[in-house]
Design a protein around this nucleic acid. Structure first.
Length: 491
RNA sequence: GGCCCCUUCGUCUAGUCUGGCCUAGGACACCAGGUUUUCAUCCUGGCAACAGGGGUUCGAAUCCCCUAGGGGUCACCA
């Protein structure tokens, strides 16, 4: 990092889809680096692909970043001195650079039809040739003639005239110095036939214009870097430092794709993954604070963040680990805090209504907290609390209900609960023990049918908690309905 | 195929730059016990890795070379 001035980094998504987990982690690392060094985190929108851009994508990306807690200092909805932050609004600058490139000769007009170039590359591939891409045919065109053809409206692109014999060194904080020879770089397209510049062109231009000191991005961009560096040289622009972070892999060991699971941050949000757990998880992919810290706050992450400590190898997106982390976060959330977050999920599942009290939700949160991993789990696990939720007991519950003593147990429990002064009994354990001994049965024989009648299943929170969530009327109703369903005892 | 990157338990990783403290540590998952009215939580224990081969060195997971394997990239996408 250049001494003295605080670093400037950027995350530059293209609004052609939702925020991918890989992109999210890249953003996270950029953000952490900026925060760690008192630098500036810029958000730049690379909307040079007019076909695929969409406003919905942009909104989704911004929402996902905010959800993760990654705030930007300059960019959309924020402004800044280096704007505009949408590449579609920087066309005049790109045009000026292109004009200069043509004039200085490091850009040239190429009239080769796309089909010719495609065929060329096809040939190279088939022949297993080591030749690189475009054969530079138009590079030798007479300048005046090229201008004439262009003026006549002939379709063409602008290509970068890659110089021979140059060595390009990418200064990478993760991989050290990566060297390329300019012979290996093709004369890439800088401006499309439609006049729209390409990624490699505008990316380097904007990084320089926005005074980006460190380019932290995915490893898939490493092979592109020489093109951008060559452009910097042609324009006499300063070269940024780099950090190409390893890919996030699917279970198959390849770049994470939709085949191997959800790839959009929004998907995880929609399924009820807690944001802090997601942040934590992403921060653990390719990075570790030390040999034992696996849970941390954003502040702790920032304090420990160091580009040099990022791993070189790709990291598999391990859903098991994410789930575990989510559970850790939910268990650590106080019920009073958890309750409001659970509400929408419970409401959607028809478990609570607008009239449901905060107190009830808190009780629910306290009862379920240790068995939830995602907010969304509450809807599934709490399903039995819906009206009639115990009417169709599962296999195990049905078996428990079929025990010979069930009728006595349910009747006795209902009677005692009806008469109880406080509901549920203040000391449920003692209450249950008393009931068991009065019936001359073991605890298991008593609790199982109760649980089955109350919730239709044998799992879940302690029976005392279930009673509290159901309330006296509904609990008694369920006990009696279950008792009524039993076949009458033979005389 | 060319170029580039990578390689520690099944997975995420510590250790590698600054060889010895590593009979390689932690975590997830898994397995086995324990606690518990159930599930879950929690506790205890277990399984499990330096890709292979050569060097250098008194000593290598750590340094060098080779091989193998994996990945990325070769668009008028970003």
């Amino acid at each position: 990092m250049s001494p003295g001035s605080p670093p400037r980094v950027r995350f530059a998504p293209s609004p052609t889809g939702r925020l991918h987990v890989g992109g999210a982690r890249t953003a996270l690392f950029n953000w952490a680096f900026a925060r760690r060094h008192g630098g500036v985190f810029v958000l730049r929108i690379e909307d040079t692909d007019q076909e695929r851009n969409s406003a919905a994508s942009l909104r989704s990306i911004l929402d996902s970043l905010r959800w993760l807690g990654l705030d930007w200092d300059e960019g959309p909805e924020k402004g800044g001195d280096a704007g505009p932050y949408f590449q579609s609004q920087r066309q005049d600058r790109y045009r000026e650079a292109a004009r200069r490139g043509l004039e200085e000769g490091w850009l040239y007009r190429c009239f080769c039809p796309p089909a010719r170039v495609a065929a060329l590359k096809e040939e190279q591939r088939a022949a297993r040739s080591s030749a690189i891409g475009y054969d530079r045919r138009c590079r030798g065109l007479d300048r005046a003639e090229a201008e004439r053809r262009a003026a006549a409206g002939e379709a063409h692109v602008l290509r970068f005239a890659v110089p021979a014999g140059e060595e390009i060194v990418v200064r990478d904080h993760i991989r050290g110095r990566v060297r390329f020879r300019s012979e290996e770089v093709e004369d890439w397209v800088a401006v499309r036939s439609g006049g729209m510049p390409t990624y490699n062109f505008v990316c380097a231009l904007d990084d320089a214009a926005m005074a980006i000191s460190h380019v932290i991005r995915g490893e898939e961009h490493l092979a592109n870097t020489p093109k951008q560096l060559l452009l910097c040289r042609a324009l006499g622009l300063p070269e940024p430092e780099f950090a190409h972070v390893p890919l996030i892999l699917g279970a198959d060991g390849r770049k994470l794709s939709k085949r191997t699971g959800d790839t959009a941050i929004e998907d995880y949000r929609a399924k009820g993954y807690p944001a802090p757990a997601m942040f934590n998880f992403l921060g653990l992919l390719g990075f570790a604070i030390d040999d034992r810290t696996d849970r941390f706050t954003p502040e702790e992450f920032v304090a420990a963040f160091d580009l040099g400590r990022i791993n070189k190898a790709g990291a598999v997106f391990d859903l098991d680990r994410l789930h575990w982390l989510c559970g850790e976060y939910l268990r650590a959330t106080p019920p009073a805090e958890l309750a409001p977050r659970l509400r929408p999920w419970l409401a959607e599942a028809g478990i609570v209504g607008p009239a449901t009290s905060e107190e009830w939700l808190e009780r629910f949160a306290a009862a379920f907290r240790e068995r939830l991993r995602l907010y969304g789990d509450a809807a599934v696990q709490g399903a039995f609390l819906r009206p009639g939720g115990a009417d169709r007991p599962d296999a195990k519950a049905t078996a428990a209900l079929a025990a010979p003593e069930t009728g006595r147990v349910l009747a006795a429990a209902a009677e005692r609960l009806e008469q109880a002064e406080v509901f549920p009994p203040a000391d449920f354990d003692s209450w249950a023990r008393e009931l068991a001994s009065a019936l001359g049965l073991g605890m298991g024989k008593v609790m199982k049918p109760l649980r089955a009648a109350l919730s239709g299943t044998l799992g879940g929170p302690p029976v005392g908690e279930i009673l509290g969530l159901l309330g006296r009327e509904r609990a008694l109703g369920r006990l009696r309905r279950a008792a009524g369903r039993l076949s009458p005892p033979s005389p």
